[in-house]
């Protein structure tokens, strides 16, 4: 993301001339609770992926056609815990970020 030093360099009209530049802003720093997934318990139903308001859960469709939950993108996860709430098998737990300070 360019940081503009002069009005002469900026695109006019307040236009943001590139898409998805917000990715350069890490909302992960807002987080005080961290979601942790127990992959043994996870049934890869992808409800967490569907609900995550921050698009901070990765997923894919495997070659066998089954879906797979690939974990969290902590650059963006704000720690709201919606994933844990919607998980039908309670495979996600929310832990205080303080536990990860080392």
């Amino acid at each position: 993301m360019p940081k503009y030093d002069s009005w002469k360099e900026m695109p006019i009209a307040g236009v943001i001339d590139k898409p998805a530049t917000a990715r350069e802003y890490n909302t992960g720093t807002w987080r005080i609770m961290r979601p942790i997934v127990d992959k043994d318990a996870c049934i890869n139903c992808m409800q967490c992926w569907l609900y995550c308001p921050d698009m901070a859960i990765n997923g894919k469709v495997k070659e066998d056609g089954k879906t797979e939950m690939l974990g969290f993108d902590y650059n963006y996860c704000k720690g709201c815990g919606t994933c844990a709430e919607v998980c039908p098998v309670n495979a996600i737990t929310m832990k205080p970020e303080t536990e990860f300070l080392k």
Binding site: Y4, S6, W7, M10, P11, I12, A13, G14, V15, I16, D17, K18, P19
Partner: peptide
């Protein structure tokens, strides 16, 4: 047009929230 909204291959954002860090510059423009 320089920034047509309908240029779907080059998606752009029109009319963002423009706070104290850049609003002034846009008005200078």
């Amino acid at each position: 047009p320089k920034y047509p909204l309908l240029d779907i291959d080059n998606p752009i954002t029109h009319g963002p929230l423009d706070l104290f860090d850049y609003y002034f510059e846009h008005h200078r423009q």
